[in-house]
Design a protein around this nucleic acid. Structure first.
Length: 276
DNA sequence: CGCATTCCCTGGGTGC
DNA sequence: TGCACCCAGGGAATGC
């Protein structure tokens, strides 16, 4: 499941593979992927356009072409593949035929991924409208400070884990890395959000940077699946708590609970609940 | 308003 | 082997 490091890896891999490539044809097989324009509009707007750059905002990929911008969110299982002009397989939902006779294919077994297309707009414009409008700072951004978090979180009473999954507050963390960050910060996932101390918030920021930096360096985490052209990450070998049985710290059994409907791993001894 | 729940999907796992 | 069932989850929509 792609989180920030996986999307960063996909972005960098795709940049090597498709920048400068011109789109000859587009085939949308599963139509619900395209959100904000008709399929006809999507096709016609993309044909003849060349990939100029690829950016990332949170977990969104932003493809910059001549006059259009394509926004892509991989959700759970979205992947891109570069192939020759061969038969379309079962889970390929959008096929971009390129002039070099290669094809760029969006593959998504659960069909949760979405795409948006913008015509004659620049990146600054689309950052001001949905769905990018409410994407919060990334852990690396200088604006993400203890003071900022203190203010944003002061009225939130739900579990801190649910808050960290909310992309409008901090962007880029998903289910895997939130568990890791909370473990590294010795914070219980069910801790009430607005009861966290400044020191706890500081730990969350620092450990978010640490875990994402390391995951990016290792090309992301491959638990279920994510890849471009079969390239997958190695961070799963570095996980401390998510999907683990034994705490690497105190060697007690890792607990699995549900928080906001999400499978959540923690060590009760290392992540004590403080107040509430 | 905040928060919990439901929904979208399909492959993989389980039990009979 | 086949079949019914449940589970995984990011984010939007819905309900309280």
């Amino acid at each position: 499941m792609p989180e920030l490091p996986e999307v960063e890896t996909v972005k960098n891999t795709l940049k090597r593979l498709i920048l400068g490539e011109k789109i000859k044809d587009v085939n949308v097989i599963y139509q619900r992927i395209v959100q904000n324009v008709t399929i006809e509009d999507f096709r016609e707007s993309l044909i003849g356009q060349t990939f100029k750059d690829i950016l990332r905002r949170g977990k969104y990929l932003i493809f910059i072409l001549d006059n259009v911008i394509l926004l892509s969110h991989l959700r759970m299982e979205g992947k891109y593949f570069i192939k020759k002009d061969e038969e379309v397989t079962k889970h390929e939902h959008v096929i971009f035929k390129l002039e070099s006779n290669k094809t760029l294919r969006y593959h998504d077994t659960r069909k949760f991924g979405v795409m948006y297309l913008y015509k004659n707009k620049n990146v600054e414009d689309i950052l001001k409208e949905a769905p990018l409008l409410n994407i919060g700072y990334e852990p690396f951004d200088n604006e993400l400070t203890v003071d900022y978090l203190k203010e944003r979180l002061k009225k939130i009473t739900k579990p801190i884990k649910s808050t960290l999954l909310d992309q409008s507050i901090i962007s880029g963390l998903g289910n895997i890395y939130v568990d890791e960050v909370l473990f590294m910060s010795n914070i219980h996932p069910l801790e009430k959000t607005n009861s966290l101390s400044n020191q706890a918030l500081e730990s969350i920021i620092i450990n978010s940077q640490r875990v994402l930096d390391k995951a990016i360096a290792l090309g992301g985490t491959t638990i279920h699946s994510f890849s471009v052209d079969g390239i997958s990450g190695k961070f799963q070998n570095e996980l401390l708590v998510h999907t683990k049985d034994i705490c690497p710290n105190c060697h007690k059994k890792i607990l699995k609970i549900r928080v906001g409907g999400r499978g959540t791993y923690l060590c009760e001894d290392c992540q004590k609940r403080m107040g509430d």
